[in-house]
Nucleic acid binder design. Structure first.
Length: 613
DNA sequence: AAAAAAC
């Protein structure tokens, strides 16, 4: 399997191609069943061959006019919007739901038909989705789970055990979710029980549903609550914050599905897009507001949104939301406006990584919370082959070109191999994209200096396979669910190992194998040790030269040490430093290694330094 | 030092 990177990519592509034949054993490797995120299960197989990719990128007039009009924004106003903002007619007045929710919101006299978010799923891109029946759901049974906190509610094993209500159950069926994922099994009962939650779980493990289901359920139950009526101010009951616009859009799209015909209204607000349209959406009523911090602060200062009635607050990618760049804004939203205090609202923090210092910060926002860490089946540990190569700065471009050439030659005919290339800077992204394009590789780029239209267009162009190479800054590192990414290249490694974890998590999704290649050189010395440790725990081959760098590397403190030494997760910082870590100092500490499966799953052997020690 | 996030 690990013969060469090109083979890995080719294997990945051929597994995609052979998906139909996989369905009966559900295994791409003999030893472990594969985990498929719920939103990707049970899609119908493609009915026709995907079209060959066209050799172009998404920039109008790009080739001939590199200088002037390149950034000119010469797009039509509706370009870049079709994937989102379908909320335009989102009245959610199902007719048979009783409609009590809408009458509060002042839009009850306009019964527009709610767009069915389930009808348009298939045949959307050049790939088609694989049939996932036959997945071995018993794979769930040996996922290590760690909970701590007072009186942790018992997990469930099926959606039927949870009373989410008929409307929500119907949408769960429409989403083809068969059984809850591990994070859902634990998180949903915790939130339904009214508890605050800090959850470590990988993206793609069903996090979005894990916080959306209990929020929607809670809003349906509280539908009789009286909300103030301002002439222009709206009073959402739930707020979901995320660090990037694209991620907010993605969460919004998901939440729309889950709340279809429940009468619960979901609105998204983010920067870079005209505010007027978003204001109109808000005026039509909002129960769940999904937003990026900057635009929300704007709306709050204009008094167009009040947080006074917030019952649920969810921070996705919570560790990023609380890092240095974001923390002041988040504190303003959560502590300095009219948001109810902890204990009077329910707060949920989710991320795949949760450094100790951030946990400490986050505890300001929480009240008697439960900490939940869910290990992963598949994805990084099992399904991503990680390679690291020593590449001098000046050799990076030609090295990348070699990779791409070989990949093109090894690719399965007619199947796209999406490659996501991470760089450090926005300028570097533009310059690399330009260079790739000039060398005949259809590439596009996404970063914070592009307009929102350009960003969304680039993402769509990449997802569809039109430009199968996407050069990205960290704006694309977290949370984005892009199926079919076979290869993540860390052209520039990040300085923080957590960022590396998030970046490589863009591949190896949906039970497919993925490849992550990193270019390492003298500029990345501080990453040598954490990277070597991480790869070792993930059972990856660590080159000798990296081990040497790692042992040589001495750096102060544990800044780059992952919290608790754990991989792909973390542990409750409240339990650090207690005299006996096995005593439940805070009560309720509980390591559940899972349903009678003996310890020793992958690298997570209890007793060894890991997330579960 | 860089990236993200409002106008």
């Amino acid at each position: 399997m690990r013969t060469s990177w090109a083979d890995s990519v080719a294997n990945s592509a051929s597994e995609n191609a052979a998906s139909g034949s996989l369905e009966n054993n559900g295994l791409s490797r003999p030893t472990r069943s594969t985990y498929v995120p719920p939103h990707l299960r049970n899609k119908t197989p493609p009915s026709s061959e995907p079209p060959a990719p066209s050799q172009s990128n998404d920039r109008i007039g790009y080739v001939g006019a590199i200088g002037g009009s390149r950034w000119g924004g010469g797009f039509k106003a509706d370009v870049g919007r079709s994937g989102h903002n379908s909320s335009g007619s989102g009245y959610g007045y199902g007719g048979r739901t009783g409609g009590g929710l809408n009458s509060r919101s002042g839009a009850w006299d306009r019964k527009e038909r709610e767009v069915n978010p389930f009808g348009e799923e298939d045949g959307k891109d050049a790939f088609g989705e694989q049939e996932n029946t036959g997945i071995n759901f018993d794979a769930y049974e040996d996922i290590p789970v760690d909970t701590s906190g007072d009186n942790v509610p018992a997990p469930v094993t099926s959606f039927a055990e949870i009373d989410l209500g008929e409307m929500l159950n119907q949408n769960i069926r429409r989403c083809k979710y068969v059984r809850p994922t591990p994070v859902q099994r634990y998180a949903i009962p915790i939130v339904l029980a009214g508890r605050d939650l800090m959850a470590c779980a990988q993206t793609g493990s069903g996090k979005t549903a894990a916080f959306c289901f209990p929020i929607i359920c809670g809003i349906i139950r509280e539908h009789s609550v009286q909300r103030p009526r301002g002439p222009r101010t709206v009073y959402p009951l739930a707020l979901i914050l995320s660090p990037t616009r694209e991620l907010s859009c993605q969460i919004h799209d998901e939440a729309k599905k889950f709340s279809y015909q429940t009468g619960v209204k979901v609105v998204v607000a983010y920067g870079g897009a005209p505010i007027n349209q978003q204001l109109r959406e808000l005026e039509r009523g909002v129960d769940i507001l999904v937003a990026t911090p900057g635009r929300l602060v704007d709306l709050l200062e204009r008094a167009r949104v009040s947080l006074q009635m917030i019952r649920f607050l969810a921070l996705d990618e919570a560790d990023r939301m609380l890092d240095m760049g974001f923390e002041p804004q988040i504190r303003k939203i959560v502590e300095a406006m009219d948001m109810p205090r902890p204990g009077l609202r329910q707060t949920m923090l989710f991320s795949a990584t949760f450094p100790k210092e951030i946990q400490r910060l986050a505890s300001d926002f929480l009240s008697n919370y439960i900490f939940l860490a869910v290990g992963r089946v598949g994805s990084s540990t099992d399904l991503i082959v990680q390679r690291v190569e020593f590449v001098r700065e000046s050799d990076k471009r030609s090295h990348l070109m070699d990779l791409l050439h070989a990949q093109r030659e090894n690719g399965v005919q007619g199947k796209q191999t999406l490659t996501l290339v991470f760089v450090e800077t926005k300028k570097g992204a533009d310059s690399l994209e330009h260079w790739l394009y000039m060398n005949g590789f259809p590439a596009t780029t996404i970063h914070g200096d592009r307009t929102q239209q350009e960003r969304e267009l680039a993402l769509r162009s990449f997802k569809s396979g039109k430009t199968p190479i996407l050069v990205a800054t960290d704006v694309a590192a977290r949370g984005l669910d892009i199926p079919h990414v076979a290869h993540v290249v860390n052209f520039d490694l990040p300085n923080d190992i957590d960022d590396y974890v998030h970046r490589i998590g863009r591949t190896g999704r949906a039970g497919k194998t993925g490849l992550a290649t990193a270019f390492f050189n003298d500029n990345n010395l501080s990453l040598a040790r954490p990277l070597a440790d991480l790869m070792q725990e993930a059972n990856q081959e660590v080159p000798d030269w990296l081990t040497r760098y790692a042992s040589r590397a001495s750096y102060g403190g544990n800044k780059n040490r992952r919290s608790g030494g754990g991989r792909f997760g973390g542990r409750d910082f409240r339990r650090e430093g207690s005299f006996n870590r096995n005593m439940d100092y805070y009560g309720g500490g509980n390591i559940d290694s899972g349903y009678g499966i003996p310890s020793g799953y992958g690298g997570y052997t209890p007793g060894v330094a890991s997330a579960w020690d």
